[in-house]
Design a binder for these strands. Structure first.
Lengths: 180, 180
DNA sequence: TTCGTCATGTAATGGGTTACATGATTAC
DNA sequence: GTAATCATGTAACCCATTACATGACGAA
């Protein structure tokens, strides 16, 4: 894919992430090329959104993962360390769950959940300490923040549950289980 | 208040905001002093958390709003422009609602709500466009993101409703309404 | 004695944005 | 004719973080 389209997709289809600007996207692509993870193909006839070719347009640069790039990508997807479930990375990791093994998926989801439960404990403790000193609006803000976290925990519970169910179904099938 | 305590409060009681580090807090305070919005008072005997005085400790610098600073603060609180309800600022604005007039509060809440409704419309449109192309996890991420926004809209509805109710009660009282 | 807390501060660094430059083409 | 879209890129800037420096104290 070329840079311009990549950015458009990041902005529209994945509305969850904050949009990247060209000022950071293009230098980033170049740096990945220097690292040998991406290869540039000067080809790719420019066309408009309806597929009509536009010969005189500026040439696109189509990027493709190199063998090394794919390796690095899979390495990243298989990592289950703490930064996989911190706020900054969890969203991206989840977006690539389709290319992630179930084992890793479950570990990431469970890691995220326990991270959020830690946070909830801290929030509850701090609310107990500061309840009297704070005005109604600050309290309301805290309450809403906490409910957001609780909601994400419930979401994770459902996801973990369905991963588990899927795994169990698969285990049963593999054992050739014949119980009705 | 002095810098150290300010940072501690920002980290614990207001767990919603990301913690500020000293590396940005202290320079920021100094810059506000240069701008004449804050005044330094070298006083303030250092003490430990139990109030015991600690004579040999490093001296605190207690900051206080100047007249100009208070003016600027109130000016900021009275602004109802778009940036009052964008993601970056809405939380801070809300935290100071206790010091904000009801008129401004309602305009900010309504502004935020219509901002989010715009966003929802875009998300729905993009989901309709991309439903087939995306895998289950990406879709799930989008769905969850959309529900988060919908949830905030419901929260805003409740807040606006209760502001309105409060205003109506006050109007009635001021008119000396005697209807049972 | 070593760690954590109190308290302030600087320097290096990082990761992003905005604004600008270029240039053709299409839609209003 | 003027704006918007396609397409890439650079430079200036902003804002925050991390790591470090200083120094005394209390607790394990």
């Amino acid at each position: 894919m070329h840079g311009y389209e990549l950015r458009k997709r990041l902005n529209t289809s994945l509305g969850v992430f904050r949009a990247f600007s060209y000022g950071s996207l293009y230098p980033c692509l170049k740096s990945l090329v220097r690292q040998g993870l991406l290869a540039e193909e000067p080809g790719g006839d420019p066309d408009d959104s309806r597929g009509k070719p536009l010969a005189n347009r500026r040439a696109r640069i189509v990027y493709r993962l190199t063998a090394e790039g794919k390796e690095r990508f899979e390495e990243l997807l298989s990592q289950t360390g703490p930064d996989a479930w911190e706020d900054e990375h969890f969203g991206v990791r989840f977006a690539f769950f389709g290319q992630t093994s179930r084992d890793v998926r479950m570990r990431v989801l469970e890691g995220r959940r326990s991270r959020l439960e830690e946070r909830l404990a801290k929030m509850r403790a701090s609310m107990a300490r500061t309840r009297e000193r704070l005005d109604a609006y600050t309290l309301e803000l805290q309450r809403h923040g906490m409910e957001s976290v609780e909601r994400e925990v419930r979401w994770l519970n459902e996801l973990i549950e369905s991963e588990r169910a899927e795994r169990d179904r698969r285990d049963q099938r593999d054992r050739g289980d014949t119980t009705t």
